[in-house]
Design a binder for these strands. Structure first.
Lengths: 354, 354
DNA sequence: CTGTTAGCGCCTTCAG
DNA sequence: CTGAAGGCGCTAACAG
């Protein structure tokens, strides 16, 4: 009944205080739960608050406390399911702690990244979680004294915590798997080699070769653009080489799509003509035939862990930055087979489907 | 050189004013560009600001102005590429106008929705864009006088603008396509029938039948859970009916995945044994064989249009709420064929692949 | 246990 | 054209 009056201004703590017949500070104490308040008074204040539909002004509160109940999340590309999942994981964890999320999609542009970071600073976010494209953001955020966690890759380990996956081991394992199956001409398709992700995956690729006493031919590490179209072009050209590779290893789900399409367009069969495997997963990899072998990195968990770490750091700002590395899992599926020309699996692998 | 002192407090407008040798109000005018300032003074202030790395405190500013430079975006499930794209579209548009985005993933829970909405209100966001799960959020936001746009579906057309797609027409067209191909036992798989999206898609399904002089059998509209597993179960049971449907029409990308998996698991061929088509698209639909016929609804554009509408409404808060409907496109692919038992395409359709 | 006082950093009249 | 003064809504001392 008694339709509350929402026609005028928003209801402030002053209104609540008056309605409950107490002072503003008492109302504040009753509402926040900090400081002494008589139980009877607290009840009165709280019921007045709900009756009036009072919601504390987070701006005013944050202005006072010097930080808002929000963390900033800065990702490269929300359209990529990897980043979307990452953000979703972070958001879920944040919500548990009653923190909101300010989300910015930088589209990979570093000036967008900068302006988003400035917005975060100006909003006095409690902390920032970022998939950086260079050291600038983190440096900037550190200079503004905002707790920061670098996710997926890192550029400033002395300024921020980081959460990454075992890039080297993941790449090494899947490469090792290929080598055991007799592949000797494996092309790695990669979109960038200068960030920690790319660098470490290449390193794993190289180490696996070395462990088999093989020297990695540099021309087998092919750098391409970041979208699936560019990847498809690169893959097409690789497949046209005189010595066609017997396996392609892509370093993320987008490149995998490109390579997959290129292989199909070339009329080649997977895995009979060419094996395909990838770092990073995507939904389609269990829907195509054959399903795609992948190094799985659970983006949701990555976001969740990063948010958890950020929360710790917010609570303890002076702790030394720490790097966390999450494990990857090699998921064997049917897109990887013995190298063409070999009679059978030389043993040592156990490609169990799941 | 002169490494700025970031070791202490954040730099405020007061610091800038002192550095430039003017008062705080003059500095404010110089920085915001509102009010008179001598050109020479403005230069001095601005250079001082950049030199000190000044970023205005958005909290303080917003407290004064009663709203923050941020819009709230409330979606059901960031892990679903549809919502992720929607959010990405909205974020991009917002950024053009120098607005940030506060993102909340409600996981479909209505109390999470409520608390996210309260956070938005308490942060005094300039407006909210929501994919609602009931009329409550919008009602609440309206009572808090926050400009709101309902996206994808709407519950409160008199309180908020809305941006939806042509659900009825889209469903009608694809159903019509099936009917022309001779299908007479088409099952629609749907996760909810009470929201505008579901209601309208069912309506389109029904109308197409009527236009062909057919009565829609209610048992051919099958309601299922919202995830792909539930959808697969429902599809499996439908496929086991004595009179097996010759076509399945799912109402979103998640259900499509479930149905697709169920069809495969049942060992049926698409489209020879059963045709499959869906509302909503997903990446995998052009990667599986055959590719999936879909009513495409461009989530990115949906988010973009919704954000644009919200911005208009923020500028003109008293304008009457308006509904906007975006067109869908029926994309013909190979997952739909003539009804089994018919010799050939009865004509009238032109399934051009793309 | 409660009320008074004093800002958080900014913008905005209002005088000068 | 510029400075002084006041207040946005809230909380954190500090008295009472």
């Amino acid at each position: 009944m008694a339709q509350r009056d929402t026609s005028r201004q928003r209801v402030t703590i002053k209104d609540v205080a008056e309605a409950a017949g107490v002072s503003r500070s008492t109302a504040s104490r009753a509402l926040t739960g900090r400081g002494y308040v008589a139980e009877e008074v607290r009840q009165r204040v709280q019921s007045a608050a709900t009756r009036l539909g009072y919601v504390a002004d987070a701006l005013a509160r944050s202005l006072k406390q010097r930080h808002s109940p929000v963390i900033g999340v800065l990702v490269s590309d929300l359209s990529n399911p990897f980043y979307a999942e990452l953000a979703a994981g972070a958001a879920r964890r944040a919500r548990e702690k009653n923190l909101g999320v300010m989300l910015a999609d930088t589209a990979g542009e570093s000036d967008a990244e900068r302006s988003a970071a400035e917005l975060f600073v100006s909003m006095r976010v409690a902390g920032v979680l970022v998939t950086p494209v260079g050291p600038q953001v983190t440096t900037y955020l550190a200079s503004a004294r905002v707790p920061t966690v670098e996710v997926d890759r890192y550029f400033a380990p002395q300024l921020a915590d980081s959460v990454t996956v075992s890039n080297t081991a993941g790449a090494r394992d899947v490469t090792d798997h290929l080598l055991r199956l007799g592949h000797r001409n494996i092309v790695m398709l990669i979109d960038e080699a200068s960030w920690t992700t790319g660098r470490d995956r290449i390193e794993g690729f190289r180490r696996a070769h070395e462990a088999h006493g093989l020297k990695l031919d540099d021309s087998n590490v092919v750098t391409t653009g970041w979208n699936s179209r560019d990847a498809a072009l690169a893959a097409t050209s690789v497949l046209a080489r005189r010595e066609r590779p017997t396996a392609i290893f892509t370093t993320n789900n987008v490149l995998a799509e490109g390579a997959w399409r290129a292989i199909h367009a070339a009329g080649l069969r997977i895995p009979e003509d060419v094996s395909l495997c990838t770092f990073d997963e995507a939904q389609w990899m269990t829907m195509v035939t054959p399903e795609i072998t992948a190094v799985s990195q659970n983006a949701h968990h990555l976001g969740d862990a990063a948010a958890a770490l950020l929360l710790e750091r917010i609570a303890e700002p002076d702790r030394a930055p720490q790097p966390i590395e999450l494990e990857t899992t090699l998921v064997h599926r049917a897109s990887v087979g013995p190298a063409p020309g070999l009679p059978c699996d030389p043993g040592g692998t156990r490609p169990e489907r799941r």
